[in-house]
């Protein structure tokens, strides 16, 4: 459902150009739990941003449900980000002035005008509370981000990514900054969501986490390669 075809992306700073992605081809299948691994700086976040329509590639195509999205007008890309893709950031990225509940509600608020918001507020709030309950944060609804622990922040950010019922969840090292136990909890949560039919692409450093995903790909030298490491191959039976 989500396809990257021959993606190139380079960052230019002054005269120096850093070529990060050099022909990435990747196809994410509907209902799949895909994990992307790679060394630090290999361009995993860059790839995820391109897939989530946060950024545009230099060349190549990104297709979502068969439709090319990287060349869409800004308005359509905004709608795509808002409604079809859920994004979980490595550093949570919650808005510090808002409570956990308000942060979760934010995509819904963005998608609606003031009148429609006031009309549907009750239902959306209910949905947000259910989501926070599901991620185990129902006791922290009205806390500000700085009053929450890392794990709680990540749970809130997952709830936020789910509020618009997206078709795919893109998670950039969702456990990167968490201790093992908390990370495992997050992973259990993601697996639960996956078993409910959500397509998930997860970037991670942690090879152990890839054990419970359907498929693993590795980013190296600006390209996607199937892991050559036998142990990894063993770890990713679906590949």
């Amino acid at each position: 459902m989500l396809e990257a075809i021959n993606l190139h992306k380079s960052y230019r700073r002054d005269a120096v150009s850093v070529s990060v992605l050099r022909g990435v081809d990747l196809a994410v299948r509907e209902g799949e739990f895909l994990s992307v691994i790679g060394a630090s700086g290999s361009g995993k976040s860059t790839l995820l941003h391109l897939l989530g329509a946060l950024d545009t590639p230099d060349t190549g195509e990104v297709r979502f449900e068969g439709r090319r999205v990287d060349t869409l007008p800004a308005r359509d890309r905004e709608r795509l980000r808002n409604q079809s893709v859920g994004f979980v950031f490595q550093f949570y990225h919650l808005l510090p002035e808002l409570t956990a509940l308000e942060n979760v509600l934010m995509p819904a608020m963005i998608s609606r005008g003031i009148l429609r918001w006031l009309g549907t507020r009750g239902a959306v709030r209910k949905q947000a509370m259910d989501l926070l309950d599901r991620v185990g944060l129902s006791h922290r609804l009205h806390h500000r981000p700085r009053e929450l622990s890392g794990g709680e922040l990540q749970r809130a950010s997952i709830a936020r990514a789910l509020i618009m019922n997206p078709k795919v969840l893109l998670a950039d090292e969702p456990t990167g900054n968490l201790d093992e136990g908390t990370g495992a909890g997050i992973l259990t949560l993601l697996r639960g969501l996956h078993s409910d039919g959500l397509t998930i692409v997860m970037v991670t450093h942690n090879l152990e986490l890839t054990l419970s995903t359907d498929r693993v790909v590795r980013l190296a030298a600006g390209r996607v390669e199937t892991p050559s490491n036998p142990s990894l191959r063993l770890l990713s039976p679906a590949c």
Partner: peptide, 11 residues
């Protein structure tokens, strides 16, 4: 925060 809002679909 502006980046976050845009990532969440704000125009």
């Amino acid at each position: 925060d502006i980046g976050i809002l845009k990532a969440l679909g704000a125009s």
